[in-house]
Nucleic acid binder design. Structure first.
Lengths: 133, 133
DNA sequence: ATTACTGTATCGATCTATTGATACAGTTCT
DNA sequence: AGAACTGTATCAATAGATCGATACAGTAAT
């Protein structure tokens, strides 16, 4: 699995690992059911402490991205996050507002944000399964 | 100025102040040229150390949101951020991708993200002044 | 000159996050 | 049974962020 870590930069290693795995899943390069490298394997590959990878996997499981099977390994989870729809909507609204504030601050307009959203490499994603709950 | 701080919650005070001022500017409730409360005034109002507000203002200035005039006070900056357009585009793309990853992870589709962007309360913002550079 | 207001700088205490060293517990296969 | 692999738990060291106390420096009006 292609993961690259920057020791410099202030971003915690476990977060970098989380983000990159999230991207791999969101872009479809990791499919539900796929097995991730074992904690120790990835730790050796990145030359970090196993605890660090363990933490990344643990939080990814809490977030519903991966699923751990006791002695078998860690796998990409099947379904989406288990959060209630209302909670997710609230979160999404927050994220969108944050993005827009930053965009406006940078001098961009709504149209440009929309363009970026439409043109994202990630746009091949299947539509949400609960557009109408 | 209406700013509310939560001591609990783990979010640093100076960040809360920054975010809320950014929102006030992005939503137009603070206009370019408007004067912000002095560091001490706001510090007393929120019952925090002046250093904390000073830090918020300092970082807002670095971000190009406000402008400090030595002995006169702190004001909302005129232009957008001074970053080069290429840099801003890169940043914006990153932000959008992050948002989409989170949205997909939560089980939402592109269409729903677009809907949220279009329906945001912030959409009354003037369009970016450099749509065509 | 004094007072009252701006923002600035320095130092230190404290707390939290992050990472690492190391030992543990369970399953699977030989 | 034993080896080799999963993920787990505990504890300590370190580094960094955050915030506060306090003193400084400049301008403007009295």
């Amino acid at each position: 699995m292609q993961i690259h870590i920057q020791a410099q930069g202030g971003v915690p290693i476990y977060l970098q690992v989380m983000q990159q795995i999230k991207y791999l899943v969101a872009s479809g390069r990791l499919q539900p059911g796929d097995e991730l490298p074992s904690i120790r394997t990835l730790a050796e590959q990145l030359i970090v402490n196993p605890n660090t990878i363990a933490r990344a996997y643990r939080e990814l499981e809490t977030a519903g991205v991966v699923e751990k099977r006791r002695t078998a390994g860690t796998f990409v989870a099947e379904a989406g996050s288990p959060l209630a729809r209302k909670e997710r909507l609230k979160l999404l609204k927050q994220r969108v507002d944050q993005l827009l504030v930053e965009a406006f601050q940078m001098g961009f307009g709504l149209d440009e944000v929309l363009k970026f959203v439409e043109q994202s490499e990630l746009n091949s994603q299947p539509p949400g399964k609960d557009s109408k709950p």
